[in-house]
Design a protein around this nucleic acid. Sequence first.
DNA 1: CATGATCTGTATAAGGTTCTACGTATAACG
DNA 2: CGTTATACGTAGAACCTTATACAGATCATG
Lengths: 337, 337
Amino acid sequence: MDDGTTSQRVTIRTVAQDAGVSVSAVSKVLRNAYGVSDELRKKVDSSISRLGYRPSMAARSMRGRTQTVGILLVEMENPFLPVIVSGIMNELSQANYKSMLAVGRADMMIETSLIDSMLDFRMDGIILVAPRLKGALLSKYAKQIPTVVVGHHEPGSTDFDTVNGNDVEAMRQIVRRVHRDGRRRIEMVSIDRSSNDSDVSYQREVGYTAEMMALGLTEHIRINRLSEQHKREAIAPLVARPDQPEAYICWSDLHGIDLVSQGRAKGWRIPSEIAVVGFDDSPAAALPQIDLASYNHDGARQGAEGTRLLLSRIHGRTDARHVLVDGKLIERSSLTA
Amino acid sequence: MDDGTTSQRVTIRTVAQDAGVSVSAVSKVLRNAYGVSDELRKKVDSSISRLGYRPSMAARSMRGRTQTVGILLVEMENPFLPVIVSGIMNELSQANYKSMLAVGRADMMIETSLIDSMLDFRMDGIILVAPRLKGALLSKYAKQIPTVVVGHHEPGSTDFDTVNGNDVEAMRQIVRRVHRDGRRRIEMVSIDRSSNDSDVSYQREVGYTAEMMALGLTEHIRINRLSEQHKREAIAPLVARPDQPEAYICWSDLHGIDLVSQGRAKGWRIPSEIAVVGFDDSPAAALPQIDLASYNHDGARQGAEGTRLLLSRIHGRTDARHVLVDGKLIERSSLTA
DNA sequence: CATGATCTGTATAAGGTTCTACGTATAACG
DNA sequence: CGTTATACGTAGAACCTTATACAGATCATG
């Protein structure tokens, strides 16, 4: 306390001095490494809490692990993403890891710059949530740092792991459920693939088509693709059609919400004549005025699963894993009477 | 390239070697410090881009600035918060700063641990968005690191700056607008203050009361306080009242949404008999089925303003500033015919 | 031409941790 | 009692950058 070397900040050296041991001993306790007696640990621990010592991340990251993983979020507006993040953080805090979150703006340039930034900060690994970046670029990064990609189908990759909702199975399940009520003219509302090159939309169409065929409803397959831009107007012609099907299964709640509200205004009897099912189980779908049945993809679980993969990868695994997470259909009055 | 010292990572040393200058010279260029000729700079810059060198944040933060500020978000579910964050990030990127985002879970323990974490990472400053932490604790941190608090009234503080929506003025404006249509029995729906000790609810009540008095409507002042927990049921008695006022001004869209939907179901004529105004302009309020008038508090501007304050504080300012940001009332069919 | 001032670039000491290699004390064993 | 194995603790280099102090060159001035 009152010897010559007293400086401002309390460092590992201060602790060592206070506890009367070597710097390396303290470091060992900190990392609970091999070769430290209970007695030593006790001395050091009490010095640490007495002095309120906190290891400097900066110094730490120059040599060893930071115990911190970077999370890159494609954007913040989509309410599905926070759920994934909270799943990630839950799992991380259990493993005593910290996180550093960065938010892109659905822009590739920004995304790359943010990933670079995480490399600069020496994160132990990164979790990319629904990135816009394509496989080749992702692979480039994945070679430099343990990487897991959530919500972005790319099951062929050998450099990073992926976690996704099981879109195909989800769609099949929805189709089966709707069919169980005796409906046969079941159509899908999807988005124009050219506007969004991700695989996500495609997977859902595959599931729809596959199950329709499995149920012998091949002749009723019909996919209405809307441009992603002008949702509200784009859906009008669908509502105005004279020949309505018995059910619409939508690629997203956005479509579903517009459909039920415009449909109700037009006098549709929902669900008796026409059932509508959305996708994503967004907060708006749950509003009593909307009450749109929707598929919940268990974002928290996707996040948790991705985190577990990343941690095992940080601990040395090198082969790529690809996980599909099942969700469940939330029944509401747009589907169930 | 092929001399003995070639290791994996490209460091400042690699660059120096490649450019045929000293390490310190490179560092000077990097920081554009005094005493470097144009010629030298050119040599170094070209080596940097040829080698794809990126300075290590870890090493950098051990001595100088990180050029990174920490953002602490109270939680992620509230859709108002991402807007603030995007305002912050916009402003930061213009000033060539990076950000590190951490998300609490509306829990004080977690918040303190996250702030500690930002100190460990040697952020140049922190922006706390709607923190749960109280003034004394905030002051403690503010003494260690430049701090700005957004969305958390605490105008008395001398240790940190604050940015807030101008709640009093907002409420006065809403009351005036509603009164302009000839309505006099204007009530407020607020939350039980004991459940939320923040100042936010109080400010809005103040504004409501003040304007009602200014308009000579003192006798009609009535504040209905609901417990924060069971919103949907808590609002039922309000809807069931036999003596309805001519307008409800709500503390939050959550109340407003329930009010318009349950009210419409009950046969209220909105807005001719009863007007409803929410607060926050959440996405759900804008849904055509809801169409709830609401006050938009310009979160992006609050974020930007906070960022500017932080940067000036990082650059040496020490006196505390307290900024109020005005927003605007978004008129929708729950208010305007 | 000597002197001082200015301008460029360099050498080098922090800065706080981790981690390998090593030394010492203690225990176990014949 | 001597030898070996094991547990505990320590020295010190390495990590990459910044920043201070200084040396050398160039230029202006008396």
